[in-house]
Nucleic acid binder design. Structure first.
Lengths: 200, 200, 200, 200
DNA sequence: GATGAATGAGTCTTCATTCAT
DNA sequence: CATGAATGAAGACTCATTCAT
């Protein structure tokens, strides 16, 4: 593949990508057929296979793009900040914001995560995300701001909580992402409990 | 359906259920064919349809059973305890333990959650789980032990974090569920941050 | 087959026959499954195959019985009459009456007539019916009462018209069989046209 | 459906239609499988579903086409004639001629008439036929040529007799359609009986 | 006589992919 | 670049029939 595409070609490719994202997110990857996609676009089957080697490649492409785009958003959010705790908070907020504006991609990534078959494709992106978060955690531990727990476990906890809240409150209940992020950050940083003098 | 089954019939049914759980978890729901299941069991195709109306019904049955079983485990874990915070912690530990001993079911439930098509079937179980957790949170707020944040959001946060840590550390890295639970509970209750005198 | 049956066995057999007639007539022969029949009767599959060798044999049995029964009704209707024209009229009336009280059988016979596969089974009954009618026609021609046209063709015309009117007016519109028979007989005997002096 | 078809596509579609008509007529609708059709045509199974949504849709298409074609033949036959009795006679002759040249379609229409399942599809065509015939009957009654019996019943009688004679003499015994039509028309118009002076 | 269980060939249909034009 | 057509393996499901108990 990796065809050189004309301007128009690139637009076509994008069209397919976008339509497929919508269908995959709504119906699921397997239940959505290539026929459905090209029909929805009003083009022949040939078009699809001109731009993508297979249905799977298309999906993988979507996944890669999504992970990349999210990461871009996260990096942009924290680039001017050095405090590790701030970075974690900003990362979470950026994730929430991105997730709010890309509900379909959020869903597709979640789905891919449950399928052994797409695990390999997800791995790299996931690891990057964990590494990013893990780094900040470690930095925070080093500066004494963050409790000395397993950094990787903490990184996963951050990611998992964020994703779950995004799915439920952003996509199911349409709560504003700022509000959800506020609670998530607050909970994550300070925990469930009311700080008691004796415990401190 | 709802056939009257003999002893032998009930065993067969269980066999199918168990084998299907394994295949669905490993290969995914859609990629696993009914043919594959009956072949793996060494029986004729008709057997499958003697016990289940369709592949989908079988899957729904699995889901229902899983949610029920998890809930049973959670209730058993907290029945002798009244302190809400303790209950939350015990519930998380029970979830981790259950998840550790039913990795396939954990995965299938996660998958179903990403598919619009199975949403309805999941809803009830999910809501029950959230309601259970939410109740404890509210109780904790009432007793002044838990911070006054949106109880439902907190409930989802607990669930999401637990599920994510279970998936990653229990199933991918085979860390003992007690260890994972310890960190999860600690993080959830007290947060990421080191309590500072000024903050308290 | 041809099993010796106990009293109870005969009742069972009848039950199956009657239920099958109803299902075949409503749904069609092919779309009705043996499972549907035994289920509707609340018995096991074994019962069916105890009384009938196959689904086809059952259907053939129904057909044979129906043709026999209709013929019996026709013979009874004309036994005291010798005039051939009278006999034709009475035969038609008997057919209408029988058809009115056995709508399902009427339908099944019609269906079997369109299927090459059941042609052989129908043939004998059909031929008997045609022979009966043909005989009366020939007698009528001999006595000078009936016009000298091809007797066999006339016989078929009588049968076809009767069957069509039975289906449409008896079964679809629920007109009384006496009324339909009156018109049919009158039309058949005297034709569509108003007799004109010049034509006679 | 309703695909845009190329010249070649239209030919394929016709091929399938024609082959299916032959198989359905010989073997029956249900016993004829889609596999049998595509195999007989030497094409892949997908071809069938490229042109038809389902086996049923194909059959319905055949039925519709047949009814339309017969009606066209009838209208063409009577277009230059105004006398209602003439029209009835010509309509019967046209039906016989059409039936003689489309024996398979005749059989399929007969079959469909016996199946509740296809009743809806047949209804419209049947009603049209009855309405056409009924109109001529009514006209004939108005002009005093036709006896004053229930017009609709007469219409059905005409249709039923014609169909039955067509099936038996055209298709089973291969009598020429002109001869059969002669007898049918004569019988229908003047009846079975020799006109007697006393009756007139 | 009767039941639940099992068989497995066969049914309709789908779908990713290829290809001639 | 793009289309309509074609492929055929594979999928879910059905069903007449048989059989152990």
């Amino acid at each position: 593949m990796t065809r050189r595409l004309t301007q128009r070609g690139q637009e076509r490719r994008r069209q397919i990508l976008d339509f497929a994202i919508a269908r995959f997110a709504e119906n699921g990857y397997h239940p959505t057929s290539v026929a459905e996609i090209v029909q929805g676009l009003g083009v022949g089957k040939g078009v699809f296979y001109w731009y993508f080697e297979s249905k799977e490649e298309l999906f993988l492409e979507i996944l890669k793009e999504a992970q990349l785009d999210l990461r871009r958003a996260q990096r942009a959010a924290i680039e001017d900040v050095t405090d590790p705790v701030e970075r974690i908070a900003l990362g979470m907020r950026a994730t929430m914001a991105w997730s709010a504006s890309h509900p379909e991609l959020h869903r597709l990534v979640q789905f891919a995560g449950t399928q052994e078959h797409f695990a390999a494709a997800m791995r790299k992106g996931q690891e990057t995300a964990v590494r990013d978060a893990g780094r900040h955690v470690r930095d925070g531990i080093a500066t004494g701001q963050i409790r000395d727990l397993d950094p990787e476990m903490l990184a996963h906890a951050i990611l998992g909580m964020t994703a779950q809240l995004a799915r439920e409150f952003l996509h199911e209940r349409h709560v504003s992402h700022e509000v959800v992020a506020d609670t998530a950050v607050s909970l994550l940083l300070d925990g469930l409990l009311v700080p008691s003098p004796t415990r401190a």
